[in-house]
């Protein structure tokens, strides 16, 4: 059952995922109209609470909310009292006092959205928390693959990159395995979490092995700005061994698609020509992100409001 909040793919069932994808398919039609706006969430307020910088996810939520006629307010860490050391919960409670109907949260630390959800009456959507989950990214990836392939069960999907630190990888592993796809993960050993097999995936230590015969290659961003410890000797070496190019992609199926959550480090994890052209579907992912987030907002926002609580003594 899709609950009040959307915090992690691991909370959802395959049935929930199908319901979201189906709803997204209908939302896509709204996006193709001349007037791309429906009155569904009129009078509802969505707060985008981003403690970590983001352009595409925030914009995507903003457009999705506006297409459903909600009022969307952005609240980012720079230029807010977050930089004045206000605690996260105080910030959240302050926002709550403004009676939002949905709060979309991104934070650099895993578990913060859940903590905020526990404190607020409004439903919370996790827009990425630390290395934990990024559920709407995985959902839009599922949606993109479903639209490209027409089905999900039985597909083989290779996820390549910093599996250890990637919330996108974690959410996608849950999402694709729940839908009956086979998932492989590939990374230098320093970027593979110990015991990753327990998530139902097959670890590979070479790109060649990972892409062999797959339907989908999902390339993760090397977070150059976050690499404090040395996980690999040099960017050049990473590009040579785990960077995807057309040559290495030859081993995949003929109709393979290449995905990337963006922004791309061209020439590091993905060859520039591959980033721009088929079989990569990176811009499709962005396009689908809006419809998918409309679906999530529709399914979560604007439910019957909780009865107004008695004033506490």
């Amino acid at each position: 059952m899709i609950g009040r909040d959307l915090l992690a793919i691991s909370d959802l069932t395959a049935e929930d995922l199908w319901k979201i994808l189906e709803t997204a398919e209908h939302m896509q039609e709204v996006g193709r109209r001349d007037i791309k706006k429906v009155p569904t969430l009129r009078g509802r307020t969505i707060i985008n609470l981003f403690f970590e910088s983001s352009t595409r996810t925030r914009t995507s939520f903003e457009i999705a909310g506006k297409r459903l006629s909600a009022d969307v307010v952005n609240f980012s860490s720079s230029g807010s009292s977050l930089s004045k050391d206000e605690s996260i919960l105080d910030t959240a409670l302050t926002l709550e006092a403004m009676a939002p109907d949905v709060v979309v949260v991104r934070h650099g630390v895993a578990g913060v959205p859940r903590r905020i959800a526990d404190a607020l009456d409004a439903p919370v959507i996790n827009a990425g928390d630390g290395a934990h989950e990024h559920p709407t990214q995985a959902l839009l990836d599922l949606f993109t693959v479903y639209q490209e392939k027409g089905h999900l069960e039985g597909l083989s999907v290779a996820i390549v990159g910093d599996i250890l630190n990637s919330r996108v990888a974690r959410s996608n592993i849950h999402a694709f395995t729940k839908m009956g796809a086979e998932v492989r993960v590939a990374a230098p050993p320093t970027m593979l979490p110990v015991g990753v097999e327990s998530l139902g995936v097959k670890p590979c230590t070479s790109l060649r092995e990972a892409v062999d015969g797959v339907d989908v290659v999902m390339v993760l961003r090397i977070q150059l700005e976050r690499l404090s410890g040395a996980l690999f000797p040099s960017v050049r070496e990473y590009a040579a061994t785990f960077g995807l190019d057309r040559e290495k992609l030859r081993y995949a199926k003929d109709d393979v698609i290449v995905m990337h959550p963006g922004p791309v480090n061209r020439g590091v994890e993905l060859a520039p020509d591959l980033a721009d052209h088929r079989p990569s579907v990176i811009l499709e992912q962005v396009r689908n992100g809006v419809a998918l987030r409309m679906a999530v907002l529709y399914l979560i926002a604007g439910r019957a409001p909780a009865p107004i609580a008695e004033p506490k003594q």
Binding site: P39, Y298, G302
Partner: peptide
């Protein structure tokens, strides 16, 4: 033409109604 997104009772209903095709 699906009318679900234009309904006036979406707040009252708990579970969101499934959307249908518009063509």
């Amino acid at each position: 033409l699906d009318t679900t997104l234009y309904r006036d009772d979406l707040v009252a209903s708990g579970e969101r109604p499934a959307l249908r095709r518009t063509e």
